[in-house]
């Protein structure tokens, strides 16, 4: 790469990075407001003695507003990069992380808005975005070219369905986190007015079943894409093996919950385990496989 090309590239990066930073800042603010909302209950309960002014619901609309703002800003960041490179965020880890931050925020915002019961879980779910956010900012936003096998409509279906899977896993994990945290001395007061563990547990597993449905669809769409792209629908490559193990893990967890009356907290740990495995599948595969999908280049 000569000097002129290098300068042009750096100028190109600058167009999406400010929007990315702004979007992540909105997510951070959403998290802080959510935490403040939960903490104010504790403060109100101990010093004022009433919860009327300390209701976390007063914070909820600001949390939602910040998440929606974050999604909007990330939309601009993705659009900037898309217009510059001429293709969607499908190729390298920087693009995958950026698009996941967008889709996780979008789905979480919709669920947060439509299912008020899970709003306290924002203090668990939103910090997970920080991990992705910190990671994406640590990466070089290197320009990418779309491989020839990515010019396929099934790629969109595969990626889109996978985003729903991970987002619903995040929602379930947020609820599972509340179940675990409320049983610790430090955080018990934060969640004292949240419905019983059994209610959260049931809701969390419903989202995990929803995640299971989208995971199944993602595998199906991915198999069709792989058949078109590489002439085989399954080849046990790094991502295929890992995602299939993740599907089995989630399926087995659902069956185990139905069969054995596993304690709620153990079920919550299982949900978090599924999410962690999914996280490793999505973002860890590049570290142990040079080509995530066999023949991708």
């Amino acid at each position: 790469m000569n000097e002129a090309t290098s300068v042009l590239s750096v100028m190109g990066y600058a167009t999406e990075l400010p929007w990315l930073w702004a979007g992540l800042t909105a997510y951070v603010l959403a998290t802080l407001i959510a935490v403040m909302g939960m903490m104010r209950i504790r403060i109100g309960a101990t010093t004022v003695g009433t919860m009327t002014q300390a209701s976390p619901r007063a914070h909820e609309k600001f949390v939602l507003l910040m998440v929606v703002l974050g999604v909007a800003l990330l939309t601009v960041a993705i659009a900037e990069r898309w217009m510059r490179l001429g293709h969607g965020p499908f190729v390298n880890l920087f693009e995958l992380l950026m698009s996941q931050l967008w889709s996780l925020g979008l789905v979480f915002a919709v669920v947060y808005w439509r299912v008020p019961l899970l709003r306290p879980s924002a203090v668990v779910a939103l910090p997970m975005m920080w991990v992705l956010g910190g990671w994406v900012l640590a990466l070089q936003p290197v320009d990418t070219a779309l491989p020839p096998t990515y010019h396929n409509d099934w790629l969109w279906a595969h990626v889109g369905l996978g985003k729903f899977f991970l987002a619903f896993c995040l929602v379930g994990t947020g609820l599972a986190g509340v179940i675990l945290l409320r049983n610790t001395q430090r955080f018990a007061a934060w969640f004292r007015h949240v419905p019983a563990d059994a209610v959260l547990d049931a809701l969390a597993w419903r989202f995990m079943l929803l995640a299971f449905i989208f995971h199944s669809l993602m595998l199906t769409a991915g198999a069709v894409w792989a058949q078109d792209a590489w002439g085989r629908y399954w080849a046990w490559d790094a991502l295929e093996t890992s995602s299939f193990l993740n599907w089995l893990m989630l399926g087995a967890s659902i069956h185990a919950r139905l069969t054995y009356r596993i304690p709620i907290r153990v079920g919550a740990i299982a949900i978090i385990g599924v999410f962690v495995f999914a996280f490793i599948t999505y973002f860890g595969t590049p570290f142990y496989s040079t080509a995530a999908h066999k023949g991708v280049i």
């Binding site: 019961l117 007015h193 547990d201 419903r206």
Partner: peptide
């Protein structure tokens, strides 16, 4: 999935799950 929580100020103390 459309369960709505009771308003906080009106909410009675919801029993916590004491056992699995």
């Amino acid at each position: 999935l459309q369960i709505a929580p009771a308003r906080v100020k009106d909410a009675p103390e919801v029993p916590r799950a004491s056992s699995p």
